[in-house]
Write a protein that binds this DNA or RNA. Structure first.
Lengths: 184, 184
DNA sequence: GCCCTCATGTAATTGGTTACATGATTGT
DNA sequence: ACAATCATGTAACCAATTACATGAGGGC
């Protein structure tokens, strides 16, 4: 038996449902939008989890028949679900987990040509710029209508990308100067 | 069948073994030391992976009999292993994956009392301070003997924690002012 | 007496991913 | 024609975690 439950999709979905009833499809959108820089889950996780939660009585399902669009199932949290959510909020906070293929490569950079490393860094910068832009857009979009703690989340995300970009840009420039100097 | 292989322990272990022969126990230490802010793996992953890799001919095992200490198995990368490593380095870089229980809670902060949020933030700050201190210590310890790209990794890690700490400290102070104002 | 370091390994479980399957409607 | 949006779900697979098992030596 597992002694300390770590962060799982059920708890996060419970949290999303605390903010209002929702469908599996909408939950996926939430994960891709605001949640994207601190959690994620696929349809293959969301739908079976929702089904299990309903069986456990944590949520209820209401089928909505739509015209011109596929029917959908709206899930609502129950009293038991709210208690499960509160139990999660009461549990110890698990450590952040963070896996970066880019940083693994960078760490092993000595085994590839410098040009490759430059390309990696450029790609990484481009990816982060895209994500930063998305967060900045979110900040404008949701301005005034999100809670104070949600604002902190957003700021933390923005700072993360801005900081990484700052370092990466400076290091890429330095790296290029070094390569240029070697070629002479 | 999986079309795009994502970051896995085998590739990372291959990379560690490129830097020199090592035991499972030593690899675990590497994960807990320098790698800790961008990758991690437990003994339950390391030993079975090493065994599989040996069977596949990617590495060779040499048993070392020690006195006063348990015997150990030193693994060395083979030619086939080097090729597998290079194939990994040639593959597309996977997106960073990042799950933060702390940020999930923060996002759902409206459902708990403000005092709880303060405690969470304080805890998070303390944890990050510890990790930052470790990285700063690494920077001194390995100064001059790590590769340029490894230095970038270290800087990226330091910046990450410093940035998060900056935001968190400022927001905690603001949060406290808000709470104090409400109480009057 | 107790815990830490050194050192390796297995077994049970599980949480999650990818790929597949289906299908109407709307926009380019 | 083609792709995207809306919408739900299953099946096969697997990578990884936790807990357990073992055991000597050194420091407190």
């Amino acid at each position: 038996m597992k002694e300390v439950a770590d962060l799982n999709s059920q708890d996060v979905i419970l949290g999303i449902l605390m903010m209002g009833s929702s469908t599996g499809y909408e939950i996926k959108n939430v994960f891709e939008d605001v949640y994207s820089h601190f959690y994620n889950a696929s349809f293959g996780t969301i739908y079976p989890t929702l089904a299990r939660m309903e069986k456990q009585g944590l949520i209820t399902k209401e089928a909505i028949i739509q015209e011109g669009k596929p029917n959908k199932n709206v899930f609502t949290i129950t009293e038991a679900g709210k208690q499960a959510f509160l139990a999660y909020m009461d549990s110890d906070i698990q450590e952040n987990e963070w896996k970066s293929d880019f940083m693994v490569r960078l760490f092993l950079g000595e085994f590839v040509e410098p040009e490759r490393i430059e390309v990696w860094m450029e790609m990484s910068i481009a990816r982060m710029e895209t994500k930063l832009a998305a967060l900045l857009a979110d900040q404008c979009k949701y301005q005034g209508q999100i809670t104070p703690t949600q604002t902190i989340c957003l700021k933390l995300g923005i700072e993360k990308f801005e900081g990484q970009l700052r370092v990466l840009r400076a290091e890429l420039a330095a790296f290029r100067r070094l390569s240029a100097a070697k070629e002479l």
